[in-house]
Design a protein around this nucleic acid. Structure first.
Length: 479
RNA sequence: GGCGCCGUAGCCAAGUGGUAAGGCGGAGGUCUGCAAAACCUCUAUUCGUCGGUUCGAUUCCGACCGGCGCCUCCA
């Protein structure tokens, strides 16, 4: 089976077919850099990371674009509140985002276009929409897109079958629009915008881009320049973006280019806390830095995330996190064991290369699971199956060439998930002390002074060092 | 009000029209000086409830109950 993905546009799992294989253009909606991203945001980025890695593993040549929204209502509000200019506010959060991304082992996108650096592209896009008569200047001086002029409007969110909530909201700009559902492409500047530097000159008036505009302008600019196309293969985000964000992106892009904006739309479910979405608004959020402070490593968090399918809500609890940590640790232990066995160049019988067979099966199983709409929980289940079976073979003395083969495959598969525990830095002085203590314990054990040996073990434990006696000597790690 | 999603063991969580993956936890065992790790066995006659379709439904349809999301900034 080849890769199949659930396309929000059709609400069906369908075969993935990029426009010009092996190239795949992938656009993922990035963070708004008015603050730190929270782990709910990162759940989405992690789902996209898995998609990216699986595409590359499958032989595709992926070009990954992630935007950074550095001008919008929240950014302006936060800048004004802090008495800063736009860039002054956003720059530290951009850096923080990249740090968090690296901490969570998320592969960097190929480009991170920022809204403020694509003003020309955005202005050109609005201009084009005005020329085509799809956009109009409202009475308030802002530019709106007339959704009545775009027949396909509502296809993604099935809006054609929905009605606006009665009396839901009457925005201040409502009177300026021809149709309440029209949305702003370009917002006329106000005093606060000027104060923080969120204002640009355009033929249709001084203003700033509407929220949706940047994604259309930047993705079209990136793929247009590079590949001469105006259709993305993949466009991803979380489900809250389906409407209005993605719906509006489609309208403004397709109205301008006459081409499909994206072939496949993927949307991830939320990370919840006690059943409610994690959100800045509810204050129930945790940042990647909070995780780091709590000693939660990337392998643990990634395990937690990938043990739930990306279209299923994931409820974040300490218990689930702890279970994920144990699972990640188990995988790490196994990896270490393989490496050690390989290092010892076991001459044990190949046993028909059972390990190699298991490894090949694992690779096929994982590929099949991920091909099935990125069924990572299933894929990880196969990994754990493999670990159990391989440990069993190792226990029974399997060795030979199969070990190296298994290690190679295991590393390849782990490369998709990156769920292994992070290596912890150990202070040289602690390391010296541990070695000295272990030597002392060895002497005690040799002379059958187990009381002393156990005392030393407790001593080590007290400083967070756990030990494990193996035929090859005593192993230790800091927990 | 409109559109959409979820409800599987103590917890987390896959999945299929043909009789329930995996992780964590728990019980017992093997190995070990003891631990730890690893391995073995066991841990859901049952998939929110009630109906319907079917030879057969957790899986399809309907109703209901419970939880949630979007429609307003949103990963």
């Amino acid at each position: 089976m080849s890769l199949h993905l659930f396309n929000t546009l059709t609400r069906q799992v369908e075969p993935f077919a990029p426009l010009e294989p092996p190239r795949v253009t992938m656009y993922t909606c990035g963070p708004t850099v008015w603050n730190f991203a929270h782990i709910g945001n990162f759940r989405t980025f992690l789902f996209e990371d898995l998609l990216r890695r699986h595409l590359e593993w499958s032989g595709y040549d992926v070009f990954h674009i992630m935007n950074l929204t550095d001008v919008d209502d929240r950014v302006i509000k936060a800048a004004a509140a802090a008495g800063k200019r736009l860039a002054e506010l956003t720059e530290p959060f951009v850096r923080a985002f990249f740090e968090d991304r690296d901490f969570l082992r998320i592969k960097p996108a190929h480009v991170y276009p920022r809204a403020t650096q694509y003003m020309t592209a955005m202005i050109t896009l609005v201009q084009r929409l005005l020329e085509r008569g799809v956009a109009y200047r409202g009475e308030d001086g802002s530019v709106y897109l007339a959704i009545a002029k775009f027949p396909g409007y509502g296809r993604l969110s099935q809006l054609d079958r929905r009605q606006l909530k009665v009396g839901a909201r009457v925005a201040s700009d409502e009177y300026a629009k021809d149709d309440p559902r029209d949305f702003a492409l370009w917002k006329k500047t106000d005093a606060v915008d000027e104060q923080v530097g969120a204002a640009w000159d355009a033929p249709f008036g001084r203003g700033r881009p509407g929220w949706h505009l940047e994604c259309s302008a930047m993705s079209l600019a990136e793929i247009g320049e590079r590949f001469g196309v105006q259709t993305l293969d993949l466009h991803c985000g979380a489900i809250d973006l389906i409407f209005p964000h993605h719906e509006n992106e489609i309208a403004q892009s397709e109205a301008a280019t006459g081409q499909p904006f994206a072939r496949t739309w993927l949307h991830g479910a939320f990370l919840n806390v006690k059943g409610t979405k994690m959100s800045k608004r509810y204050g129930n959020f945790l940042t990647a830095r909070d995780l780091q402070e709590q000693g939660v490593d990337a392998g643990t968090f990634r395990t937690l995330v990938y043990q739930t399918h990306y279209r299923q809500p994931l409820d974040y609890t300490d218990e689930a996190l702890d279970a994920a940590r144990k699972g990640s640790l188990r995988l790490g232990e196994f990896r270490e064991r393989l490496e050690n066995e390989d290092g010892r160049r076991r001459t044990g019988a190949d046993a028909g290369d059972r390990l190699g067979d298991l490894a090949r099966q694992l690779e096929a199983d994982v590929r099949a699971a991920l091909d099935d709409d990125l069924d990572s929980p299933n894929a990880l289940a196969r990994v754990f199956d493999f670990v159990r079976a391989a440990n069993g073979e190792l226990d029974r003395g399997a060795g030979g060439s199969g070990v190296a083969a298994a290690l190679a495959v295991f590393d390849r598969v782990m490369g998709l998930f990156a769920v292994l525990p992070g290596g912890r830095q150990v202070a040289p002085e602690l390391e010296r002390w541990v070695h000295e203590r272990l030597a002392a314990r060895d002497r005690a054990r040799k002379s059958k002074d187990f009381k002393e040996a156990d005392r030393i073990r407790d001593e080590l434990k007290a400083r967070g060092v756990e030990i494990e006696d193996t035929p090859a000597g005593t192993r230790w790690r800091v927990v």
